[in-house]
């Protein structure tokens, strides 16, 4: 079943001359994990915001086409309605702290209070996400006193606690060290296994290749490609779009080693290892 359907979406920010999103069409099935890639200002954030309804409700501006989120048409529903279906984590963890709560624990509760989750359920969910993102030890700290990485994990935890069916993450690992990024990807993976649909704008291609089912490549507001990581990263014109393939793909490309029985290059360490061992034999 299609969870998100985008048809001919066009959008222009107020006071802007050019289209930020230009005739975008794609659909996402329930439980899929989609990576959105492309250079800075290609439209990744705008696309994410168009799915939760910030575009056009928050910004206004010229809007065309149709976005359906779990059957709700974004244009005709309020952000509050859509936020029950789709949650979004933004790039900057600092501005996602509400500023009205004194502890991390209360901060995560903020969204749950707004959507009317009963108290016992609320406490269960908070404990669960604190554990999932390994921030239990700071639950009584002031949200502003956290490190960048902890704050980012708290921001993701706050959205995930609201249990949306769709989660959009806009560069959620920008402040995290490699270990922290890996933890976030694994947590997201476990959400995917629970059947949650995930869209993530991300620049760490190795991670995208390893975890995503499909990759959406954007360039100046247009969809260039929407396919499996193997197909997208095997393209030989990636640098035109400001993207570099995972290092494993580049090595295999240089050596001319393709995946066994396919016309694409390996994109993860495991695949590359298998393909190279195969070649040595």
């Amino acid at each position: 079943m299609n969870k998100i359907v985008v048809e001919g979406l066009k959008y222009k920010y107020p006071l802007s001359e050019t289209l930020a999103l230009d005739n975008i069409s794609f659909s996402v099935k329930e439980g899929e994990f989609i990576g959105i890639i492309g250079r800075n200002s290609a439209g990744k954030s705008t696309l994410c915001q168009a799915i939760v309804g910030l575009v056009p409700h928050f910004y206004k501006g010229a809007y065309g086409g149709k976005v359906l989120v779990d059957g709700l048409e974004v244009k005709t529903h309020s952000i509050a309605d859509i936020s029950l279906k789709a949650g979004m984590v933004f790039q900057n963890p600092f501005t996602q702290v509400t500023g009205s709560k004194m502890t991390v624990y209360e901060e995560i509760a903020f969204g749950l209070e707004n959507i009317g989750v009963p108290r016992t359920e609320m406490i269960n969910r908070i404990d669960e996400v604190l554990h999932l993102f390994k921030i239990e030890h700071v639950k009584d700290h002031n949200p502003f006193d956290l490190s960048g990485g902890q704050m980012q994990r708290m921001a993701i935890a706050s959205i995930i606690a609201m249990k949306p069916e769709i989660i959009l993450l806009d560069e959620p690992t920008s402040q995290l060290d490699p270990g922290g990024s890996e933890e976030v990807f694994q947590a997201v993976q476990s959400l995917k296994n629970q059947g949650i649909t995930i869209l993530m704008a991300e620049h760490k291609m190795e991670k995208v290749a390893q975890y995503c089912d499909k990759v959406l490549l954007l360039e100046s507001g247009k969809v260039v490609d929407y396919d499996t990581p193997e197909v997208v990263f095997s393209r030989n014109d990636l640098d035109v779009f400001g993207v570099t393939a995972p290092v494993y793909t580049k090595v295999c490309q240089a050596l001319g080693v393709k995946k066994k029985g396919a016309d694409t290059y390996p994109v993860t360490l495991k695949e590359a290892e298998a393909a190279l061992k195969e070649m040595r034999r």
Binding site: Q49, V52, L54, F58, I79, A80, S83, L84, G87, M88, F90, T95, Q96, T98, F110, G111, N114, I115, A155, S158, I159, M162
Partner: peptide, 8 residues
């Protein structure tokens, strides 16, 4: 925006 998506 962050408040909006958290159902404020």
């Amino acid at each position: 925006m962050a408040l909006e998506v958290r159902g404020f």
